[in-house]
Design a binder for these strands. Structure first.
Lengths: 241, 241
DNA sequence: ACAAAAGTGTTGAGATTACACCCATGT
DNA sequence: ACATGGGTGTAATCTCAACACTTTTGT
C-alpha cells in the first residue's frame, strides 16, 4: 500500500495594474525545478482544509488579508505528481486590490493571461479559479473581495474589467449593482485628477461577505409577495377561506 | 501521527413518484448503527475520485446508470467521523427517472424533504446536492439527466416541479427550453389517457452532456456577432500578433 | 355536445444595453 | 471658454410570467 498525502493549493487572485493576477511560487527542488506552482502544502492533522489554506498562505507567502476563500475542486489523478500519491484540494482566494502584501523573493504575481511554465496540474487550477471568479461576479456580490473598501465607480469598473477580461461600462455597472442593493454611497467625493473632470462620488459595498444577488436565471418560483390580491379568478378555490 | 483516510460519498438523486429522492444506506455497525448514510467508501490507490464514486455505486448499491456526476465539496472537519480521520470528497450523481435500479435490502430511496436520521455530516451533503441541482436546472441543461430519453412536456414539467420543489408551468418551461435550443421534437406523439385530451408530442434533449445554456446573468461581454466591425480595440496588444 | 389535456398567441412587467446629454472641475 | 471625466435620462431590446384561447381527443 502506497502512502497517500493530502495537500491544499490556493489560486490567490488579485487585480493589480489593471490586470487579474495570480500569486505563484518558483519551485526550488526537483521535480520540476524552476517551474511555477501554487502556494499550499500538506494538510495538518488538526485543521480542516480551509484553515489549512489560510495557515499556509500566512506562513509561506505572508498573505493574511484574504477577502474571500472558497473551495474549487479536488484534483485526484493518481499520477498527478510523481512519487507518493497526493490528492489536492484546491481553493480560490481573493485579495482586495488596495492590499499589497509583502511576499517572499521566490514568489511573484503573474497576469492570468500570461502564465509562466507551471508545475504539475496547477495551470488547470488557475484557469478554474479564473472561471469561477468570472461567473460569480455575475450573480453574487464577490466584487467586494476585489475592490478597495471605498471606491469610485470608475475604479470599480477597472476592477471588473480586469477580472472579467473585457471592457465594462461604468454607467451600467453602477446601475446594476445599485439595483441589487450592493452599492452604498459614502457621501464623500474625491477631487478630480490633473486633467480636470467632475469629482467622483465614493461608494462602498453594502455587505462584505459573499451573497447570491441574482439567484434565479429562469424558472423562478412563483411570486409570493407582489400580487397581494388579484381579482379572484373563475372557479379556483383560493387560499383564503 | 494519526492515520488519514480518504472516502468518497455520493448523493444519488432521482425524481421518483413526483418527488426528488436520494438513495441512502442503513448503517449496520457502530458508530451510529441504524442511521442512514450516503453510499461511498474508501478511495482506491489507482483510481481518481470520480472513478471511485462510480465504482462504489456499481459495487455496493448496483447503480450503474448515472446520467450525470459532478463534484460537490470536500468535508474535512478533523472530527467529522469518530476514530481515525477521514476526509470526504462528495458528489452529486443523477439517475434518469425512467430507470429503477435494483438496490440492496439495506438501502432505500427517501424524499429529500423527509430525510430519516442521517449519519455524520451526510445531511449537509444531501442538502448541498439538492441546492446545486436546483441552481443548475436554471442555467444549464442538466434536465437531460433527470428526464427520460423521450418525454412529453407535461412529464418534463413534473420532473422539474419535483426537482425544484414548486409548480412549474408547462407552457413556459417548453418555451424557455426551446428558445435555448435544449428541446427537440421527436415527431411522435403519445395517445391521451382514459380521460381524453389532445395527444402529446414527444421531445428529447438536444444534448446528453452538461452544458451551460444561460452563461451570463449580467455584465455580458460586449456583443461580438451583431455589430459587424466595431472600431479596433484600444491599444492593447492582443493575443494575435 | 361536453370535458380534458396539449399547445399557441398575446400582453405586460422587468432587466439590461446603448447612447445622448447634463454636471463639476482644471487649465 | 474649453477639455475632461463623472453622472443621469431615456429609448430600444430581450426575456420571462401570466393567461386567454385554440386544438385534438375521449365519453
Amino acid at each position: 500500500m502506497s502512502e497517500l498525502g493530502h495537500e491544499v493549493l490556493a489560486a490567490v487572485l488579485q487585480v493589480r495594474s489593471r490586470s487579474l493576477q495570480v500569486l505563484l511560487w518558483r519551485r526550488a527542488r526537483e521535480p520540476q525545478v524552476g517551474r511555477w506552482s501554487l502556494p499550499g502544502g500538506q494538510l495538518g492533522a488538526t485543521e480542516d482544509i480551509e484553515a489549512s489554506v489560510r495557515r499556509q498562505l500566512a506562513e509561506k507567502v505572508d498573505v493574511r488579508q484574504l477577502s474571500h476563500v472558497e473551495q474549487l475542486a479536488v484534483f485526484s489523478a493518481p499520477d498527478r505528481v510523481p512519487g507518493d500519491r497526493v490528492i489536492a484540494s484546491t481553493f480560490l482566494a481573493l485579495v482586495r486590490s488596495d492590499n499589497d502584501p509583502v511576499i517572499p523573493d521566490d514568489t511573484s504575481w503573474f497576469p492570468i493571461d500570461a502564465l509562466p511554465d507551471t508545475a504539475f496540474d496547477h495551470q488547470a487550477v488557475v484557469l478554474r479559479a479564473r472561471d469561477r471568479l468570472r461567473s460569480k461576479l455575475s450573480y453574487t456580490n464577490v466584487g467586494f473581495a476585489l475592490a478597495a473598501p471605498e471606491f469610485t465607480v470608475s475604479a470599480l469598473r477597472d476592477v471588473y474589467s480586469a477580472a472579467l477580461g473585457y471592457r465594462v461600462s461604468a454607467t451600467n455597472l453602477q446601475r446594476v449593482l445599485s439595483r441589487r442593493g450592493q452599492l452604498e454611497p459614502t457621501g464623500e467625493t474625491v477631487p478630480p485628477g490633473p486633467s480636470g473632470g467632475r469629482p467622483a462620488a465614493l461608494f462602498r459595498f453594502a455587505r462584505a461577505s459573499i451573497q447570491i444577488t441574482d439567484p434565479f436565471a429562469v424558472f423562478r418560483p412563483p411570486a409570493t409577495t407582489p400580487p397581494p390580491a388579484p381579482p379572484s379568478p373563475p372557479t379556483e378555490s383560493a387560499s383564503r377561506a
